[in-house]
């Protein structure tokens, strides 16, 4: 499965050992077939890193494997958090050890209000923020604290989902396509929020994205996933300059 420009060599040389999250030769799949073949990632503490790739490249599958969802099944390789293998851990244990996720779809609990959604995270986190502290990042949500999530717009729900993840006061925040399906001005607002969470709260952020422009706006280091393999690890400059690369792997 290894080619001459296997990303793991690049990652190994550029990343210091003892990264917060390491994914090593991960292979995973569903009943219908294998999706991930060889995924290598290393995210250092305090970093803001993206995983880019076309539709169907395996981005969400990677996220689910890191978070320990029921599916996909991990077929090989390792996921290490703070140097410890977490592959056999149940999802809630990973959350309790400081990983929070903002999922791609069904981001909030629809029948719970803003406050209830955030409280839930606070009640189940080891070292949570206070309610007001978490909501302070989102003045937009201030007027709708009692509103049920199902009655909110997509952008508001996304903010609530991020507020909920933030309230758990995680060390690592995973975001699955945080800009998907949002109006351009909300995309910019979410960009700011994610960047602030990384810069001001010191939370390591790893996100999956198809919207290359938005990813370039906030992250400087990007992994590129294609057909279930990491094909490269690049900087924003490289993506901006190399059109052939963009065309080939990102379709833009």
């Amino acid at each position: 499965m290894s080619s001459d420009w296997d990303a793991s060599t690049t990652a190994d040389t550029t990343e210091p050992s003892g990264a917060l999250l390491e994914v090593d030769g991960l292979a995973a799949g569903y009943d219908t077939g294998q999706v991930l073949f060889d995924v290598d990632l290393a995210i250092g503490e305090g970093e803001l890193v993206s995983l880019l790739g076309r539709n169907g490249a395996g981005k969400t599958t990677t996220m689910h494997a890191i978070m320990g969802a029921d599916e996909p099944a991990v077929l090989g390789g390792d996921v290490r958090y703070r140097g410890e293998s977490i592959v056999g851990w149940q999802s809630h244990r990973r959350a309790n050890s400081g990983i929070a996720i903002v999922p791609e779809k069904r981001r909030c609990f629809p029948r719970l209000s803003v406050v209830e959604n955030v409280r839930l995270a606070i009640n189940h986190a080891a070292n949570p923020l206070g309610l007001d502290e978490a909501l302070a990042f989102f003045p937009e949500l201030e007027d709708m604290r009692g509103k049920e999530a199902r009655n909110m717009s997509g952008g508001e729900q996304q903010m609530l989902a991020i507020a909920r993840a933030l309230a758990a006061n995680p060390d690592l925040m995973l975001l699955d396509e945080p800009f998907e399906g949002l109006a351009p001005y909300i995309v910019r607002r979410i960009e700011d929020i994610v960047a602030d969470i990384n810069a001001e709260q010191g939370i390591t952020v790893f996100f999956v994205e198809q919207n290359v422009a938005a990813a370039l706006a906030i992250a400087d280091r990007h992994y590129v996933l294609d057909e279930g393999q990491i094909v490269d690890e690049v900087t924003s400059d490289r993506i901006r300059e190399d059109e052939a690369f963009r065309q080939r792997y990102l379709g833009v």
């Binding site: 969802a69 999802s91 809630h92 959350a95 069904r106 609990f109 719970l112 839930l120 995270a121 758990a168």
Partner: peptide, 18 residues
């Protein structure tokens, strides 16, 4: 409230540490 969260979205509830 946690029960409601589990009912609404079990995967997300688990991913939140429940």
């Amino acid at each position: 409230r946690s029960l409601v969260a589990i009912r609404e979205n079990g995967d997300l509830a688990r991913a939140m540490g429940i």
